[in-house]
Design a protein around this nucleic acid. Sequence first.
DNA 1: TGGTAATTGGGTAATTAGGGAG
DNA 2: TATGTCCTAATTACCCAATTAC
Lengths: 198, 198
Amino acid sequence: MANSQKPESLPYLTPTQVAEKFKVSPITVRQWSSSGKLKCQTTPGGHRRYLPEDVAEFAKSAGISLDDLSTGPCRIMIVEDDSQLAHLLQEFISSYDDTFEVYLAPDGFRAGELLHTLKPDLILLDLMMPGMNGFEVCERIKRSPATRNIKVVAMTGFSSEHNVTRILNAGAETCLKKPIDFALLRDILAQCNSKKTA
Amino acid sequence: MANSQKPESLPYLTPTQVAEKFKVSPITVRQWSSSGKLKCQTTPGGHRRYLPEDVAEFAKSAGISLDDLSTGPCRIMIVEDDSQLAHLLQEFISSYDDTFEVYLAPDGFRAGELLHTLKPDLILLDLMMPGMNGFEVCERIKRSPATRNIKVVAMTGFSSEHNVTRILNAGAETCLKKPIDFALLRDILAQCNSKKTA
DNA sequence: TGGTAATTGGGTAATTAGGGAG
DNA sequence: TATGTCCTAATTACCCAATTAC
């Protein structure tokens, strides 16, 4: 189950599903929609359907704990063209906590795909990959509302002071130097884990 | 259908596709048809197929605006790292039909992102880009149910017989040789146009 | 042409949802 | 503000043979 593909989730939520996320009754969710606080769409039969982004926006505006309830298990994407290192990271993460779901993106295309289909909680991002500018990728992730709350941990073998500053300014959590210090990585995973309240 | 000459690739919708548009299960779509609320055609085997116009009419009668592709314009993604060529293609397409929406993906990451966020109708795919294997990309697009009906037109400057065969086997509509023959491109756009019912 | 996985239709039962007044 | 209940309607689950897609 290590590097399996696609966890394609439904692009909408029913009232009951939304209610479960907020730990309230479906009737309450109905009220939120009626009063306009929670945007919703409707089926031809009049039933309400909720888009994940609308739910997230409502959670934020209401100050309720937002992202962890909606995500489920912790998903981690490893963007790394060095297959050996990628698998090493994957093994380490899985052995640290086998509830983490780890996905590998060996190239930019896969990274872009998984970013929007998998919607990971954490991204380990190699800054030096052919045909891909890691800095731009990080900036783009942080610029889009749909992805900006994803944690990005940069990885690089040529960590000049300037580059480290640049990637941190782009919104990365931290910048790991190669070879990877697995103690640091474990700390990062610990933070990722503490986020889970379930 | 405005100007379609051939019933080559009719824009029929399957029950599942209609269900996705209305955020509902395929079973519900079946009920709508059984009760006569949603008109449908049937295959020789008895399976239901839906015309976009019938779906649009049903949506209107239910007071729902379809945000998605049924009524939307034709979206085209150009995957090409040569900025000059990319813009040239964009200009040509826009001048051919200014209702076409053209988006540029200068690298693999943008291509992967746009594939799932934009959900284009047609992809012009450069096979030779750094850090991106065009053949693999095409195969992946055609393998996933969510994207397999997107038309892929390959573009390459080194079109060996073997490579052309390979990309066509991967599911590409055709393989354009560089420099691009714009007459051929126009024909492709014409097919893309006949798909539109709006 | 042939093989295999995914989708579909039919029918009925079970679950969920909306509206409103409490 | 959030929720429980009643009634009716909309939506979905389940089973299995046929059809369709790749």
